[in-house]
Simulated assay, not measured.
Amino acid sequence: MHPSPDYEQMLRRSDLRVTRPRVAVLDAVHRHPHADTETVIEAAREALGDVSHQAVYDVLRALTAARLVRRIQPSGALARYEARVGDNHHHVVCRSCGAIADVDCAVGEVPCLTASDDHGFTIDEAEVVYWGTCPACSTAHPLDEVRQ
Rank of each mutant, 00 (worst) to 15 (best):
S4N: 12
Y7K: 08
Y7W: 10
L11C: 05
R13N: 14
S14T: 14
S14Y: 09
R20C: 00
R20S: 03
R22Y: 04
R22P: 00
A24P: 00
V29G: 00
H30M: 04
R31V: 08
H32S: 12
H34A: 05
H34R: 03
D36H: 13
T39S: 08
T39K: 11
E46C: 05
A47T: 12
V51G: 01
A55Y: 01
V56W: 02
V56Y: 01
V56N: 01
V59L: 08
R61N: 10
A62R: 14
T64L: 05
L68D: 01
V69F: 02
V69W: 01
R70D: 08
R71T: 11
R71V: 08
Q73S: 10
P74T: 13
L78K: 14
R84T: 13
D87R: 05
D87M: 02
N88H: 09
N88Q: 10
H91V: 14
V92P: 00
S96M: 00
S96E: 07
C97D: 03
G98H: 07
I100D: 01
A106Q: 15
A106P: 15
G108M: 08
C112P: 02
L113Y: 02
L113E: 05
L113C: 10
T114W: 07
T114D: 15
D118E: 12
G120M: 12
F121A: 11
I123M: 07
V129K: 01
A136H: 09
S138P: 01
A140I: 05
P142W: 06
E145Q: 10
